[in-house]
Design a protein around this nucleic acid. Structure first.
Lengths: 156, 156
DNA sequence: TAAGATAGGCAACCACGTTGTCGATATAGT
DNA sequence: ACTATATCGACAACGTGGTTGCCTATCTTA
């Protein structure tokens, strides 16, 4: 039961594949009117979702401190992707919501990701791709949204 | 041709799978006498290799500036994984080499990665895993060692 | 030998993460 | 009702990693 691949190739390929997809996403997003969006932004906006959140809650879903979440929110707000509003039910809370511009970025991202997946399906075959997804699902934790690694993406 | 998976699941799974493997690696490394090693260290030591390099060269293979490579080298040196020696052929250059401690970490990493891959093979079947690796190879660039994303791993 | 390229290091700066603290507001307990 | 506790959001200080710009020393080439 020998293996062709040295063990360290697998993680590296996983990382490269991830980066490739993200890079292609952002190339295409830039072409579609979102030149300034950064990988992290998309990630966080996905985590915010159409319903909105708060800083603490966002920090929890992303697996980072509320302060870090707060800073990220500052950035996204400055760039115009999200906005803060005070919760009338609880004056302490500030609801974070996507702006229309943010919504646009999000729906475009979703569409581009579908396109990219379709390209993989063409290259690999739909069945192989499904197998790949299923295998990855089997080997990874349920929670999709952990972003806790420090400095995971970069730079406004 | 409908697909079960939303397009954005694929990149997320790839990232999670990568992170899982790396986390498991470092849990095990800690158990084997390398508690202080960080993901980046292993990455960089792999890139240095048994032959040694220089800061500029390392920067190139990793896709970061020579200054960044230099800082990383400082850190690794401080922790005792690598050492600098002047090149007798070219006094400007400083050869960066793994210390025995660094070598130990590297060989242990390789072994652990093989073990982790074997676990995947058990869970998924050797054939499925090979298919997965082959598919990833098909969809990713040749150069395994790009670490250029700012702050790709963190801390210490 | 003079000119240009290359190696390494320093400084200043930025992005993003962390912990600690604090004031303001909600909520629970007596 | 009133006090005690918990939670939210923000600020400050700090650590790490990356960037660019610049400087000196050394090799290479015309």
């Amino acid at each position: 039961m020998s293996s062709d691949a040295p063990g360290f190739e697998l993680p590296l390929r996983l990382l490269l594949a991830f980066r490739s997809l993200i890079d292609e996403l952002h190339t295409e997003l830039a072409r579609q009117g979102h030149p300034d969006i950064r990988p992290m932004h998309g990630f966080v906006m996905q985590a915010i979702g159409p319903g909105g959140t708060t800083a603490v809650e966002l920090g929890r879903t992303l697996g980072v401190s509320k302060q870090a979440a707060g800073k990220t929110i500052d950035t996204l707000e400055r760039v115009g992707y999200i906005e803060r509003a005070t919760d009338p039910q609880d004056t302490r809370r500030k609801i974070v919501r996507l702006t229309p511009y943010g919504m646009d970025a999000l729906t475009r991202s979703a569409h581009i990701f579908d396109t990219l997946r379709a390209r993989w399906a063409t290259e690999l075959g739909e069945d192989r791709l499904r197998a790949l997804e299923s295998d990855l699902r089997k080997m990874t934790p349920a929670n999709l949204w952990r972003l806790d690694t420090p400095g995971w993406f970069g730079t406004l």
